[in-house]
Design a protein around this nucleic acid. Structure first.
Length: 492
RNA sequence: CGGGGUGUAGCGUAGCCCGGUAUCGCGCCUGCUUUGGGAGCAGGAGGUCGUCAGUUCGAAUCUGGCCACCCCGACCA
């Protein structure tokens, strides 16, 4: 069939693109490297947003919004941050167009309308936010300041990929200010826990919590925490980051507060974010050759009901029965869609909803009406069962939970199977080529070694796991002593 | 930005080497028959062949410029 998705074994990236496009999640837009998120994809993103937003509020945060444009002078204030993003900034230089006198009907940039100071389209909002915080913070009584922003940002990447690395992407960025280093560190770790919790309980995606090495650290951060996930093809994906910013931004933007003793001190900061990249993680974690698989908790539609009938009267009988069933399911907070379109046949609908990843499908035919049953199919295992009509609501409610946990269990099992301990560089290279996945190996702690390994094998240190088991060993590359294993992988 | 590749109907493509007005499949429209896993038959609509220029009696096809996209590097959430 033309809609069949390319086999994963043949070409994972084609497989990924096919699912994104065919499951109706997103398209490339006319704008270089940007994407159009289609209604089905956006509905999933909205579910993610709602869940995350609640978790942020439960941990004491509030939402606010800051400008898209950052004057260059503000942007460059925190030098390391500015340097880190300098190569990928879109810059606004003019504010007006005019008709081209030499070419009627066409427009040119009006050279008269050049901005005195260029505006940077935010690649991240630390600069504009810290410049604003400066006016909001005077005393310890103003702290902690716990704010999150839902926004879009632009990073002019050389190479783009739908959901994983688009020129413009949607995300949330939390920016907090604290009176003490300890509080800020606790905040950074708390939000990492929130992300890990979200990844595991909503995305059904196991992650490793860890610290980035200096090479991989966020520009302007003292410490970058991250969650790392493993995709089905064995490549790692950074799924979220939480940064301890120290006093770097407070110093750059002169944000001071008077403590209880009346002494002035710079505040301590964090920032943390997850993006529409999580959509990519979702697709590459659970999908199969029939299309997308959405964990029930994130599925905009959890159950689809497909009627099977031969005549108009048949459909009417089924519809009457379905409307009662639909209400019973909705009473259990299950989102249901009844697809009674006459324009498509049942087989077509089955395939379509599998492609779109709807967790549960109920088919009701005249045969079922006679026997008081329905056929229930689950997307994750592609199995079907016949269930008594009066037990459907509790059955489906249980089934959704089962699917959610089965997806997680499967992903966890895969992650465990794809995680190897390796002790020599030869084994390291062999494992990368044969199995991929996470490799736990000793490292001497130097950026030079990390860089060499990256050059020679394309594998990077994904993170140094938190609460890492101490273990004496020698660096696989340099042979120098090491006290713990770190996580290596080839990554997206 | 460096290396490789591709642009032909809404989507996927054949044709290009060897120049003569575009092939096939899916989708779309109409009708009938169908409907428990992507229906069958019949009829129909839809294309300035990415773009600009050149060569030629004639260009999807040859030549050059430009643009876009994909893959591999560098960069990255």
């Amino acid at each position: 069939m033309s809609k069949a998705i390319t086999s994963q074994e043949q070409d994972y990236s084609k497989w990924y693109n096919d699912i994104v496009v065919q499951a109706d999640l997103a398209d490339h837009s006319a704008v270089r490297g940007c994407m159009v998120i289609k209604p089905h994809g956006y509905a999933i993103w909205e579910k993610m947003q709602a869940a995350l937003d609640k978790m942020f509020k439960d941990t004491g945060h509030v939402n606010a919004y800051f400008p898209l444009f950052i004057p260059k002078s503000l942007f460059e204030a925190e030098e390391k941050n500015a340097e880190g993003f300098a190569k990928e900034c879109a810059v606004v230089t003019h504010y007006r167009l005019k008709t081209d006198p030499a070419n009627p009907g066409k427009l040119i940039v009006d050279p008269e309308a050049k901005l005195e100071e260029e505006l940077i389209v935010r690649p991240t909002s630390e600069a504009i936010i810290w410049n604003t915080y400066k006016g909001w913070i005077q005393s310890y009584r103003d702290l902690p300041l716990l704010i999150n922003q839902w926004a879009n940002v632009v990073r002019w990447e050389m190479r783009t990929r739908l959901f994983l690395r688009t020129a413009e992407f949607l995300w949330q960025e939390g920016h907090t200010a604290h009176a003490t280093e300890k509080e800020a560190l606790e905040e950074a770790e708390r939000m990492l826990d929130v992300y890990a919790d979200f990844a595991e309980n909503w995305l059904a995606m196991p992650v490793i919590k860890g610290l980035k090495t200096a090479n991989e650290r966020f520009a302007g951060a003292e410490e970058t925490y991250c969650i790392e996930a493993l995709m089905q093809d064995g490549k790692a994906l950074q799924a979220g980051t939480s940064h301890f910013l120290g006093q770097n931004f407070a110093k750059a933007f002169d944000v001071k507060f008077a403590n209880k003793e009346g002494k002035l001190d710079h505040v301590w900061a964090t920032s943390w974010g997850v993006s529409t990249r999580l959509m990519g993680a979702l697709i590459m974690s659970h999908s199969d050759n029939k299309g997308l698989v959405i964990p029930p908790k994130l599925a905009p539609t959890q159950v689809v009901i497909v009627p099977i009938y031969k005549s108009e009267e048949g459909l009417q009988k089924i519809s009457a029965c379905v409307s009662e069933l639909k209400r019973k399911l909705q009473d259990k907070n299950i989102s249901v869609k009844f697809d009674d379109r006459d324009s498509q046949r049942p087989g077509w609908k089955f395939a379509e909803y599998e492609l779109k990843g709807i967790p549960v499908r109920i088919a009701i035919g005249e045969r079922d009406l006679a026997e008081g049953t329905v056929e229930i199919a689950r997307r994750d295992l592609l199995t079907k069962e016949v269930v008594k009509m009066d037990a459907v609501d509790t059955y489906v409610s249980d089934l959704l939970d089962k699917i959610q946990s089965n997806l997680y269990d499967k992903a966890l099992e895969r992650k465990n199977k794809m995680t190897q301990k390796v002790d020599t560089y030869a084994d390291f290279k062999k494992t990368l080529d044969e199995k991929t996945g996470f490799i736990l190996a000793h490292w001497d702690g130097t950026p030079e070694t990390e860089e060499k390994i990256k050059e020679e094998t394309k594998a990077t240190i994904r993170c140094i796991p938190l609460n890492n088991e101490k273990e004496n060993g020698v660096c696989i590359y340099s042979g120098k002593p090491s006290t713990q294993r770190v996580v290596f992988a080839r990554a997206y």
